[in-house]
Simulated scan of single mutants.
Amino acid sequence: MLTLHIKNETSRLQAVVLGTAKSNGPVPSIEEAYDPKSLQHIKAGTYPKEEDMVPEMEAFSAVLKKYNVEVFRPELIENCNQIFSRDIAFVIDDYFIKSNILPDREKELDAIQYVIDQMNPSKVITPPEEVHIEGGDVMLWNDYVFIGTYKGKDYPNYITARTNMHGVQFIKDMFPDKTVKEFDLNKSNTIARDNALHLDCCFQPVGKNKGIIHKEGFRDLADYEYLVRLFGHENLFHISKDEMYHMFSNVFSIDSNIVVSEKNFTRLNKWLQEQDFTVEEIPYAEIAKQEGLLRCSTMPLIRN
């Protein structure tokens, strides 16, 4: 039996689902692109190749195992992109909540059914149909749950808007003792530098009281200011539009003092080291071309 336990983003990690880049399938057509960054690379002929992405994910797996984390991988589905396990489900406290994801990604959940089978069935939750929510938009900070959303009336027009207000309300109803705070994010179907696909594309806590943030990712300045008040300006590492595009805020914490980061994130990695973090640097630039990075590739199940 897997006893799920996730209260925040940075406590010591015990068990995680890490996606896989094997049998990733052909390069998508322009019509099949889920996000503007993938679209850009499809058009430019620079979409990442499986043989370049597999070693990146194996380097990540090796770092997790170095810290004695139990790593589950999805069963292989032929010609299917199974990299971003964060999208398909997430854990809050001891509940495993399935995302109502884009319909053609349902089979990605089937590929981790062997993990779900190890959980208490009463703790596995399938939200109602009107609830749209993805793990990249859900961020735990002890008594807080931060949720990225998009409040524009044109929500249905954005394939990049993945979590709706029904999703926010669902979490509020399910966890009445927590402070559930939603953040209205900037979306673009066509311009990657203007698109915060998920909350973890423009904000993520690290350590006990610090965070990485991109001010322009928020449609409402008050949402950004809320986080500045909560964390303190001096504890936040502000990233530029270019750094957001390269996914600087999508690192991954193994512990409150251990962060896995992309090796090219020089400015961020230097700051983390100055704040006494151990930074495990790995190559992940090919996977980043699909508008996802380290946090997107993981689904934490147990943290101490």
Rank of each mutant, 00 (worst) to 15 (best):
M139P: 00
E70I: 15
F84P: 03
E130K: 14
F72M: 11
E134H: 06
Y150N: 09
Y95M: 13
Y95V: 01
L102V: 13
E78G: 06
Y155H: 12
Y114F: 15
A89I: 05
K151H: 12
E108V: 02
A111V: 08
Y47K: 07
S122R: 12
P55Q: 10
P128G: 04
M139F: 02
D110R: 00
S122C: 02
E51M: 10
E134S: 02
E78S: 13
K153R: 12
E130Y: 07
E134C: 08
I133E: 07
D154H: 00
L102A: 11
G152N: 05
S99V: 08
Y47C: 09
Y67M: 02
V138K: 03
T149Y: 04
V124T: 12
I77C: 07
V145R: 03
H132S: 14
G148P: 00
F146L: 12
I112L: 01
Y47T: 12
F90P: 00
P48L: 11
D93W: 03
R105S: 01
F146Y: 09
S99A: 13
P103A: 13
H132P: 02
P55K: 08
N81I: 13
M119T: 14
I116K: 03
I112K: 01
A62D: 14
Y150L: 01
E56Q: 15
F90S: 04
L109F: 13
D110T: 14
N79Y: 07
M119D: 04
L109A: 05
V91N: 04
I97D: 04
V145H: 05
A111F: 07
I112Q: 06
D104S: 14
I116A: 07
D93V: 00
I77D: 01
P121C: 08
A59F: 10
V145L: 06
C80N: 15
M57T: 12
E78I: 01
R86V: 01
R73E: 13
T160Q: 09
N100Y: 01
E75W: 04
H132F: 10
K151M: 13
P74K: 08
N100A: 00
M119P: 01
P121S: 09
L64D: 04
I112T: 03
M57V: 12
N157D: 15
P74M: 05
K153L: 12
I116H: 03
L64I: 09
E106F: 07
V131Y: 01
F60A: 11
P121H: 04
K151G: 01
V69M: 09
S99I: 00
D104H: 14
D52A: 11
F84G: 00
G152Q: 06
V63Y: 10
K65C: 10
M139C: 15
V145K: 08
Q82I: 05
I101H: 05
